[in-house]
Design a binder for these strands. Structure first.
Length: 325
DNA sequence: CTCAACGA
DNA sequence: TCGTTGAGG
């Protein structure tokens, strides 16, 4: 089934927010989705539904979620999942184009019965509607929060940015950040209390595995992209990889089989990422424009975002935060 | 995510 | 007894 099993393998520790500083490359899809579901759950829908029925609960979520970063002197960089094509995602026109080719590629994948391609495409795009993606980007732009467009999985791109030293942590609730090679991942950035730090080096050292072996173990257990072997959980996977060395040796020894093993392996080992990004960590939010965008343009209930904007303003004017202007 | 049942 | 699975909240 997948993901939670990696928790038992990963070396994770609670870390006080005071010990976290720098830039967090946030898996935007993941982050938005978490706030979206909690907003929808706790807020009556008329507070974020426009006259024509468009739901923009994401705007409330963003306003309530960003202060967590700012108040702890952390710069978030929102990394969005890419579409399936190579088109530039900067302009709305090209995004419309992307959406079209996405549907086409999904169609092709369905016809061919390519489960992996379907899973990959759906994991990136399905949950967040185009309106949510676009209004989120616009609000982030007004608040001067950097946005990076990933060529494919946002999580892979975020991991890549940390490896290159352009960010200090990946921010995501998903454990696959580990498989994409993220050295340090922060979890629980959306909930109350201190975050958790997931450490790749420590995880590999703890089990005496290479990253390639960890990926193979995950494939045996099952990932977002493959089923895994029934009867194999975290313990069995680690000991089997330790004993036999790699995925294929384990499968041969057990007489088992996984679908798309080589492709899932490649997906994690050589993820589709880009060096073509840039962002300015000195933030200069336009709070009035942001408020107007949320409350006036999208007619979100002002009370729902008042406190969030207040907190953003307070942390922005706090003394000692020289990155703020 | 927690918990109970099940199979090795 | 341990590890995995599957249901339920």
């Amino acid at each position: 089934m997948g993901n939670a099993a990696l928790r038992d393998i990963a070396v994770i520790e609670e870390i006080p927010f005071d010990d976290v500083e720098g830039v967090v490359a946030v898996d935007a899809h993941n982050w938005l989705y978490r706030y979206l579901t909690t907003t929808v759950k706790w807020t009556s829908s008329e507070k974020y539904t426009t006259a024509d029925g468009t739901e923009v609960a994401n705007l409330i979520g963003i306003v309530q979620g960003l202060p967590k970063f700012f108040e702890n002197d952390i710069v978030p960089v929102m990394v969005f999942d890419g579409g399936p094509s190579e088109l530039k995602a900067d302009e709305i026109e090209s995004r419309r184009e992307q959406r079209r080719t996405y549907e086409e590629q999904l169609e092709v994948a369905r016809e061919e019965g390519d489960e992996l391609a379907i899973a990959q495409l759906e994991s990136r795009t399905q949950r967040l509607t185009p309106e949510i993606q676009e209004t989120s980007r616009e609000l982030l732009r007004l608040l001067d929060v950097p946005v990076v467009e990933a060529p494919a999985e946002g999580e892979a791109q975020a991991a890549h940015m940390v490896r290159r030293g352009d960010a200090d942590y990946v921010g995501s609730e998903d454990y696959d950040a580990l498989l994409f090679g993220a050295p340090l991942t922060l979890r629980q950035l959306t909930s109350k209390g201190d975050p958790e730090l997931m450490d790749l080096e420590a995880t590999l050292a703890h089990h005496d595995l290479t990253l390639e072996q960890l990926i193979d173990a995950a494939i045996l257990i099952g990932t977002d992209f493959n089923e895994g072997v029934s009867g194999i959980g975290p313990k069995t996977a680690i000991s089997a990889i330790t004993e036999h060395g790699d995925l294929w040796s384990v499968l041969e020894a057990r007489g088992d089989h996984v679908e798309y093993g080589d492709r899932v392996r490649a997906l994690f080992r050589e993820p589709n990422v880009s060096d073509d990004y840039a962002f300015d960590p000195d933030l200069d939010p336009d709070l009035e424009a942001a408020r107007a965008y949320v409350v006036d343009e999208w007619s979100v209930d002002a009370d729902e975002v008042a406190r969030g904007f207040e907190r953003i303003e307070e942390s922005a004017t706090q003394t000692g935060l020289d990155r703020w202007t």
